[in-house]
Amino acid sequence: MLRYIIYIILLLITLFFDTALGAHRVPVFTLILCVIVIIYEFISPYIYTSR
């Protein structure tokens, strides 16, 4: 649950910078964040963590 809250906060931050810094055509920071989140969510079940 905490993970999703962090994702939303990061999304708001990237949206702010995309809006303020004038990304007219593509929200670059938001896209980069989405790609990183998707890749992380996809591979995280396969990350082996020893306890």
């Binding site: 809006t19 055509r25 998707i38």
Partner: peptide, 26 residues
Amino acid sequence: YSVVILLIFIFVYFWPSVRTFLYNYV
């Protein structure tokens, strides 16, 4: 994952008008 990726594409497609709306608050 497919739904999320589709949502991202829709968001990017409508970004110019979304940005204009968001800029009033930013």
